[in-house]
Design a protein around this nucleic acid. Structure first.
Lengths: 216, 216
DNA sequence: CAGCAGAATGCACAACTGTATACACAGGTG
DNA sequence: CACCTGTGTATACAGTTGTGCATTCTGCTG
């Protein structure tokens, strides 16, 4: 279980040279957000306090909190995509349902203590334009990868799929929306939620297949 | 086009007796939120400034901003439900698609200048527990009404529906999620979005019907 | 060793927040 | 008339915020 952060090389407090890096601030920001805190309500001073540096040192790494937020969103998106990608490979190598495994992995990440998914789930609604565009960008990446996977999946089963772009968009948005509500519920209900989400996705996919054979 | 607010009776400045009411504060709060502002970033002082009263007078109406937010969420939920309910009746009286008309009405409300829908779309992600529970409650009301309507619709077409509760939940969450992204896009793209959402819902519903005839 | 460039800090400031206390005024009662 | 109760305001206070300016410290280079 390695860290998600890109270069976790030296976390021992080097005497002076780097001392503080962008990653440290990102980690500090992650520690501050939670079920009740969104990034846009976290202050610059709080982050530096958490990171143990002076407020002014923040400006050596980011212009303002928005820039940090965007870096954090990018990180969260990259992390999630690789994790889900691995889950898809794992599912196809075994014979388990891709949908099921992906949803399970998603929920697992939801409960992971790195809180990276929280960023994508919460920060899409509020904040500056650049802020929301960053979230939207990550979601669209997610959509793209899902779309090619759906096409591949349909081809493997010798079925066709109606409007795969629309299907992947619907699935992505629905999963993220359901994830947002799951985050506010006790983890005991996760299996139930996983079952619900899986069924929803199955509805969408079978519906898309049917609509393809008999277009309106 | 009457106002949504409950008792818009007298807005001329009465000499002393009522002078300021809860509604005035709610209206002031609505004026302050927008694409970039969420309720949780609006301060108590801002609301009173917008309403033209002293900060302390706020406490005569609400204990704190959270209480105002909850009142606002309730108002938004009630308003949306009645509007969508009317749209459903309008659709069944004519012979237009219920899905289509409902989605169109939803997007129309999204662009309405009362900004009531914004509250439900944005404030579900952040804020206190009571805050999010209020949004969740309104969404579940919405789900309930949609569920009975789906059952009625299926019965009218002599079809059965697999897990109507799940279908209505999926539709509700998907529509609200898509509405949130639509809000950040120029209104010119609304027709395109309406088409997309309608197709998504059609996928879900036909998928649910197919899954009912051949349960896994 | 001297010196220098960069990194990090301390202090300060104005703006803003929520709210407590004290006060001003209106309208209804005796 | 006096009096009280409810409504609104003014002032104040302690806390937090983002950020500019000056200073200190560190490790590398000569």
């Amino acid at each position: 279980m390695t860290s998600i952060i890109l270069t976790p090389s030296s976390d021992l407090p080097l005497p002076r040279k780097p001392a503080i890096a962008r990653e440290d601030l990102i980690i500090a920001a992650l520690k501050l957000i939670g079920p009740h805190r969104s990034l846009s309500t976290v202050s610059l001073r709080e982050v530096t306090r958490e990171a143990g540096i002076s407020p002014n040192s923040f400006y050596r790494q980011f212009r303002d909190m928005d820039e940090l937020a965007i870096a954090l969103i990018d990180l969260a998106g990259r992390s999630l995509r690789t994790i889900i990608g691995q889950a898809r490979e794992r599912a196809t190598s075994t014979d388990r349902s891709v949908i099921r495994v992906s949803v399970e992995t998603f929920m697992e990440q939801l409960r992971a203590d790195d809180k990276l998914l929280h960023v994508l789930l919460r920060e899409g609604a509020v904040g500056s334009d650049a802020f929301k565009q960053a979230v939207e960008r990550e979601l669209s990446y997610f959509e793209d990868e899902l779309r090619v996977d759906l096409i591949r999946l349909a081809a493997a089963e010798r079925a066709r799929l109606h409007e795969p772009a629309l299907v992947s968009k619907a699935i992505t948005r629905l999963v993220f929306a359901m994830g947002a509500v799951a985050m506010d519920q006790p983890p005991e209900r996760d299996p139930e939620l996983i079952e619900q989400i899986s069924q929803m996705l199955r509805m969408i996919i079978t519906g898309a297949r049917v609509l393809d054979t008999s277009p309106s």
